[in-house]
């Protein structure tokens, strides 16, 4: 098996959607959003990311962008209502970063969370483990 086939465990400190996005809430009310290791492994080599510019406001579970592999396109949904503060330029320039480090350097959006109560409706790492058969 090559390196990229190795599974990365779902970090315990993140929250997840059933659409395979994760969100990491920072103490200052900002948050990082990305896609899970399971998602990147299903997609295969990621070649293009289409994500919104800073300033865009999004409702919970709204489609915010697309991630493309060589032969597939998947919609991205935001885990919570938020405003986009920043996008990951490194990942946009080198989408393989999302394959390699989906939970860390391969993040997609930095956002300002609008309503932190929505976090309750997301999955815990254990629940997400169950969803993806880990």
């Amino acid at each position: 098996m090559s390196d990229k086939d190795k599974q990365i465990p779902n970090p315990r400190n993140l929250k997840y959607t059933k659409d395979h996005e994760w969100i990491r809430i920072e103490p200052d009310g900002t948050a990082f959003i990305g896609i899970t290791d399971f998602a990147q492994s299903q997609l295969g080599d990621i070649v293009f990311l289409d994500v919104p510019k800073a300033g865009k406001t999004l409702k919970q579970f709204e489609k915010f962008g697309e991630v493309e592999s060589v032969k597939s396109v998947s919609d991205l949904f935001t885990p919570v209502s938020c405003e986009v503060v920043d996008t990951n330029k490194h990942a946009i320039e080198q989408p393989e970063l999302v394959n390699k480090e989906p939970f860390s350097n391969g993040w997609l959006l930095k956002v300002k969370v609008k309503d932190s109560s929505e976090v309750a409706s997301l999955l815990s790492a254990q629940e997400y483990d169950g969803l993806t058969g880990k």
Binding site: G44, I46, V47, E68, V70, E96
Partner: peptide, 9 residues
């Protein structure tokens, strides 16, 4: 085999 990911990136 050809590197299709590279071609698209």
């Amino acid at each position: 085999r050809l590197d299709e990911a590279r071609a698209a990136r």
